[in-house]
Amino acid sequence: MFEDIALFLEVSLSAGSVLLLAALGEIVAERSGILNLGVEGMMSTGALAAFYISLMTQNPYLGIIVGGLSGLLLSLAHAFTSVTLKANQILSGLGLAILGIGLSGFFGKPVIGMIAPSLDIIAIPLLSDIPFVGVILFRQDILTYFSLISALVLGYIIYYTKLGLVLRTVGENPEAADYMGINVDLVRYIAIMIGGLFAGLAGAQLSLVHLPTWIENMTAGRGWIALALVIFSLWNPMLAPFASTFFGALSILPYYLQIFGFRVGTGLLATIPYLGTVLSMTLISMSRFRKYLGAPAALARPYIRGEKELYK
């Protein structure tokens, strides 16, 4: 029984870790006050770039790096429109999502169904022998380890360092940050780029670990679920692994229930992560709830010096 539960959690963790990477990046961006709805597009591009490089060079680690960088590159488009041009972030983000999916689908056509070298599961010696915890935490792939470590590191940076204070100030009150001499636009640019990098890495994990191949639309809405995860983890990177594992568990639950003979609508169960996404997207678009959940006060609000009143 214990073994079953450990195995279930292990698979949940790995199923959720793609979401975790993307959500962590988005948390950083949203903490700076930038809502980037283009996660799906950046993930899709990252997945293709990582797969393509891994296929061409036979080196999946190079694939990870290029996958991350391609997400970062694409995120610059959102940074330019939302920070430099002060445009509506929701529209710009949606545009980015469509752009990323379209581009990756187009350029990925020649490599559909090919096999690239994929990343292996790395069992950490000694630690992986610990009963229960070892099975869950220490038999994963390199990007899952990276995502868990990132959650801790980002959590520490955001809550316990000056850098984190700067980031949070820009997201809560860009006017105050500006008075203090912080370059609001620069901070937001960097936060968006970190978001893009992580979304690209999430895509790389998808095409190098999760389903080691490239198919069109392989992100299958994960970018949108990642946006919901940001809200479920209350913009706290350290809560994100729990939220992502929960979503991962939801996605594999239908198959477990079938084996153990529960007669439930498996199709219905599979919709839960998406229902959660719709619900949380509804909540975040209502400003009253946003404040209640602890969202950055300036989220999705462009900062234009001296034009503060326009947005109130």
Binding site: A87, N88, L91, S92, G95, L103
Partner: peptide
């Protein structure tokens, strides 16, 4: 501006 960027994204994508 946002509308334009969305339109551009839609068009290219």
């Amino acid at each position: 501006v946002g509308g334009l960027s969305l339109a551009a994204g839609l068009a290219i994508g």
